[in-house]
Structure formats: structure tokens, C-alpha cells
Simulated scan of single mutants.
Amino acid sequence: MSPTHPGAGVRPGSGPSRPFTVFGLLAAVSAVVIAAVLIAPAVHPVVRANEAHIVGDEELMLQLLSFGHETRSGEPATAWAVEIVNGTGRDIPLTIATGCRVGFPPRRTEPLHAPEKVTVSPDEAHTRPDGCTGLAAGERFFYTVRFLDGQGGRAHPPVTFIGKSPPAG
């Protein structure tokens, strides 16, 4: 073939160069993360882990308390308490399911913990222990609390807390 031939110098089966592939993959991951950051708050609230959140118009306050470190099945874990405060004048029956994702972007996801049925009395707080296995000190996490009705449907929009596990010590 002559150098002026359209296929001259191209090796059969050669694909995109490695830098182009890495750049393309990085662009795709960035687009997904940006979309998640922009779209997720419109679908359900994303709250910093050290802040409380008021759920819907029910006057329920949700917050994470008492962070600590432990080992579960030989893996590091961060434990905390989930507090729900009822600011209404009536009992509120809830079914709560929670789940955790470790890392940013998330590299490990725990399945949702078994739903727990609770009734939060007026002007009372309900506290339950929870946490995330595989979450070591200093790692980022996403912790989602889902509120279900008695039939397993959504009673309130889920709330996702995002934060960094505190240092051990």
C-alpha cells in the first residue's frame, strides 16, 4: 500500500488509544456523579450526617447521634444511633428500613436492614442503634432511612445522610 492510501499506517483491530478510553470512562463516571448530586435532592433529601432533618409536614425530626467504632465479623464498622422525634400531637406509626453505602463514589453497598415497626408518641423520641459494616474511620458514607407504610409502600420520601466517619479515638 502506498502512504497516500486511506488505510495506510492503521493496524487492523486497533481501537481507541488508552488515554482516550481512560478519559471517556472518567467523563462517564463524572457525569453520573454530577447527575446524582443534582437529581437526588429533587427526588429525596440529602442531608449532612451532623445535621437534623425535618421529614415532610409530619413534624418528624430525624438525626444521627453517638458515632463510634467497632468490629463486626472481622471488618471495621461505624455505629450510631438514629433518633426520630415526634413533634405532632398524635402517635405516628412507622416502618423504618435503612441501608448504607461506603466510599465516594460508593464502592460497597449493604442490603437494606430488615424493616422495623415503631410507634413514636407525641413529643417523644425513638432511638435505635444502627451503623455500617466496612466503614472505617475517615471514610465517606451514604446512609438512607426509608419510611414505609403498613403495606410496604412509601409513607414519606427517604432521607439520605452523607458524611465522613469520625476518627477513631
Rank of each mutant, 00 (worst) to 15 (best):
130 D>Y: 14
158 P>T: 05
117 K>A: 07
96 I>Q: 00
155 A>F: 07
82 V>K: 04
155 A>Y: 03
138 G>V: 05
95 T>A: 11
148 L>A: 14
153 G>S: 07
70 E>Y: 09
67 F>L: 08
100 C>S: 02
114 A>T: 13
125 A>D: 08
140 R>T: 15
102 V>D: 02
152 G>C: 07
151 Q>Y: 11
127 T>S: 14
77 A>Y: 07
132 C>L: 13
107 R>K: 11
152 G>I: 02
145 V>F: 04
115 P>K: 01
93 P>W: 13
84 I>P: 00
120 V>L: 00
131 G>C: 11
79 A>V: 12
81 A>I: 06
86 N>A: 07
80 W>Y: 09
110 E>C: 02
97 A>K: 04
122 P>W: 12
102 V>W: 00
115 P>I: 02
158 P>W: 00
103 G>K: 03
130 D>A: 15
132 C>H: 00
72 R>V: 12
139 E>W: 03
148 L>S: 08
100 C>T: 00
66 S>N: 15
144 T>N: 05
66 S>W: 03
159 V>G: 01
134 G>V: 00
137 A>N: 14
104 F>N: 04
84 I>A: 06
135 L>E: 02
148 L>E: 12
79 A>L: 13
87 G>D: 05
136 A>L: 07
154 R>Q: 14
98 T>R: 12
88 T>Q: 14
82 V>P: 11
141 F>S: 08
148 L>M: 14
91 D>F: 05
109 T>F: 10
66 S>R: 15
159 V>R: 07
141 F>C: 02
71 T>G: 15
100 C>H: 06
114 A>L: 08
129 P>T: 04
91 D>R: 11
